[in-house]
Simulated scan of single mutants.
Amino acid sequence: MTIYFYVEREKPYGCFSNFSAHGFMLDELYWATSEHYFQAQKFVGTPYLEKVRQTKTPKDAANMGRNRSLPLRSDWEQVKDDVMRNAVLQKFRTHADIREILLITGEEVLVENSPIDYYWGCGKDGSGKNKLGQILMEVREVLRNGD
Rank of each mutant, 00 (worst) to 15 (best):
E138Y: 08
E141W: 00
N113G: 11
E28L: 03
K59E: 15
C122G: 09
D125A: 01
G123P: 07
S69D: 15
Q54N: 12
H36Y: 11
D81G: 00
R66M: 12
V109T: 14
A61L: 07
R99Y: 02
D117V: 04
G146M: 06
V44C: 01
G65P: 07
L110I: 13
V83T: 13
L143G: 03
I135F: 08
R99T: 01
L110F: 14
C15I: 08
E28P: 00
K129F: 05
V88H: 05
E141P: 00
T105K: 03
Y48A: 05
K11H: 10
M84I: 10
E8V: 00
T94N: 13
I104H: 15
K11T: 12
D147Q: 13
V79E: 05
L72Y: 10
T46K: 01
C15K: 01
L72F: 10
F19H: 14
Q41V: 06
Y118E: 14
K59Q: 15
K56M: 09
M64Y: 13
D81Y: 14
M1V: 08
V44E: 05
T46D: 05
E107K: 10
E10N: 09
T46F: 02
R53N: 11
Q134E: 15
G146I: 07
E77I: 03
A32Y: 03
E138L: 06
K80P: 00
D81V: 07
A32F: 08
M25V: 04
N113R: 11
N145M: 01
R144N: 06
Y37H: 10
R85V: 09
P58T: 04
V111I: 15
V109G: 00
P115D: 12
R85N: 11
C122L: 04
E108W: 08
K42E: 09
D75R: 05
T55L: 14
C15P: 03
V142M: 13
A40L: 09
Y118V: 12
V111M: 13
S17M: 08
G23V: 05
E50R: 04
V88M: 12
I116T: 14
G128F: 11
A87S: 12
Q41M: 11
D147A: 07
I104G: 14
R85P: 02
W120G: 04
G45T: 06
